[in-house]
Simulated assay, not measured.
Amino acid sequence: MAHPVMPLLNALLMAAWPLLVWFTLTHPAWRWLLPLAIVLFLLRLLALRGRAGERALVGRWLAATGAGLSLVSLLLNKGHLLMWYPVVVNALMLLLFAASLLSDMPLVERIARLKEPALPAAAIRWTRRVTQVWCLFFIVNGGVALMTCLADDLRWWTWWNGLFSYLLMGSLMAGEWLLRQRHRARA
């Protein structure tokens, strides 16, 4: 079983990734963070070992990708490879959410059923629509992340992946929550 601190370390690594990349590319003295990132990604990979389901599979792929990009970047002294991680994250999240739309129960419905096992029909339709909205978000967010990589502009890459995408994600979550409350009040 994974240590209870691991999910917190993983969340911090994901949130701080753009800053870690920016520091390693602009301040060579900060390259010591790359081995630390590799260790944290490998610990995340080990923590997910033996877990079943799509979310665990995506988590393993993300951990392996993060460790691999960090290791190759460190060995080849090619820090710009680190910039591709958000593109991979968005692609895998899109795959996870979109694949769930092909099943009887989309991902957002599965998450909703953890709190409310007996969802009414209107809520089930709502969760399918929200899953579609998240797919659109991952397409747009991943597309912009890809454009910042291809432009090789670290400043814009850092602004987008370190601030704007988080603000958009938070706005999407908050907006969906507000609409859901309003929808529930009417029902």
Rank of each mutant, 00 (worst) to 15 (best):
L75K: 05
N141C: 05
M93A: 12
L57I: 08
N90A: 07
S70Q: 10
L172T: 10
Y166K: 01
R51T: 10
A121D: 14
S73A: 14
A99T: 09
A52N: 09
H80S: 12
P86A: 05
S171H: 00
W156V: 11
I139R: 00
P117R: 10
M93W: 12
S70R: 10
Y166T: 02
L146R: 01
R60M: 14
E54S: 13
L146V: 00
L46W: 14
C149A: 05
R155T: 13
L45M: 12
L119W: 13
G162N: 03
A112Y: 04
R44Q: 13
L163G: 05
N141I: 03
G142H: 00
R55Q: 15
L69A: 09
Q132L: 14
S103Q: 14
R55T: 15
V108D: 13
Y166I: 02
D104F: 00
V133S: 11
A122K: 08
A52W: 07
A121N: 04
R155M: 10
N90I: 06
A64Q: 02
D152L: 12
W159A: 13
Q132Y: 03
A122N: 06
Y85A: 08
M93V: 08
M83P: 01
M169S: 08
L62S: 03
R60Y: 07
Q132F: 05
R60D: 07
T148Q: 07
G66L: 10
L102N: 11
E116C: 01
L71M: 11
L81P: 10
T127C: 10
L82S: 06
